[in-house]
């Protein structure tokens, strides 16, 4: 294997993170502080997610890493290689085969199952951060369930844009108690948070917070009665696989305004194409 301890982190650190994880699972949506370590990558590249993954990995695990849904982007490739080297675990790109999935800003299209763990990379865990700059005050607001301010943000959206324009990191209420930032996933993915059979763990390395959604937790996206939550996506079909129900990336293809919409989940898209479901532009 290598000279690294299994999954890079030392056993004491993993133990500390697991304690934080247990607490986080016990109090869904609550941000548990933990002693985040320096990782051999810059903050913002998923140091929180990597530490949670390291603490959860076992030698029998099969790891999948995605970045904005894609298996083949820099962030995903390097984190996958990192654990292949330091933990020697098997890796995969197939959602259904993975036991542990680390993700940056997407939930896979293929429904997750019991026994899987989904680890999110979180840049800013505090949903109230840009509304109330004082950390002491936001913690008190969480403790007292004082969440009126969250709706002020949504009110401002409607007043300015005619609709709730928050498109990612859309605030949710977990199990009727804590308001949580689901990390910058598109709001299209919000409904998948609720009642998910897999364990969902959130790690914020720079901010030193861990939070979690145990399986089958009720997660409600905040909204107004007369402006209900709308999990919107681009109004197109995937140009490669023809999927109409998956979240799409817009890709600029030339300098003349040409563009195409493709599935952001590469594994889902490739799977559909392999199964013989070509889209309109597929060659």
């Amino acid at each position: 294997m290598s000279d690294y301890n299994f999954a890079y982190l030392d056993e004491e650190t993993k133990r500390m993170i697991r304690r934080a994880l247990l607490k986080a699972v016990a109090i869904p949506g609550y941000q548990v502080p933990f002693a985040s370590r320096e990782m051999p990558m810059p903050y913002g590249w998923g140091t929180g997610g990597v530490q949670v993954t390291a603490a959860c990995l076992t030698p029998e695990d099969r790891l999948k890493v995605i970045d904005q849904g894609a298996d083949d982007t820099t962030n995903a490739v390097s984190i996958r290689k990192f654990f292949a080297k330091t933990a020697g675990v098997a890796t995969t790109e197939a959602t259904a085969e993975a036991t542990l999935i680390q993700t940056r800003h997407r939930i896979p299209e293929t429904p997750l199952t019991e026994g899987q763990i989904l680890v999110y990379q979180v840049p800013i865990p505090e949903p109230l951060r840009f509304l109330e700059p004082r950390e002491t005050e936001t913690r008190r607001m969480h403790a007292l369930e004082d969440y009126g301010l969250m709706h002020v943000k949504l009110y401002e959206d409607i007043a300015r844009h005619g609709a709730i324009s928050t498109a990612y990191a859309y605030p949710v209420k977990v199990a009727g108690r804590y308001v949580m930032d689901p990390s910058p996933i598109p709001k299209f993915d919000n409904p998948k948070l609720s009642g998910c059979p897999a364990i969902q763990l959130f790690g914020a390395g720079r901010e030193q917070r861990i939070y979690a959604l145990p399986p089958y937790t009720e997660v409600v996206s905040l909204d107004f009665e007369d402006h209900p939550f709308d999990p919107s996506k681009a109004d197109h079909a995937c140009a490669l696989c023809g999927a109409t129900a998956s979240y799409l990336d817009e890709v600029i293809v030339d300098d003349a305004g040409g563009r195409m919409f493709v599935c952001s989940d590469t594994d889902y898209c490739a799977g559909r194409r392999a199964a013989g479901d070509p889209g309109e532009d597929a060659a």
Partner: peptide, 22 residues
Amino acid sequence: VSAGGNVGERLMAVGARNYGTI
């Protein structure tokens, strides 16, 4: 926050969830 949001904050804090009413 806009003037309307400022006035509406207390209403939303005590549970108002209808944009039109606020």
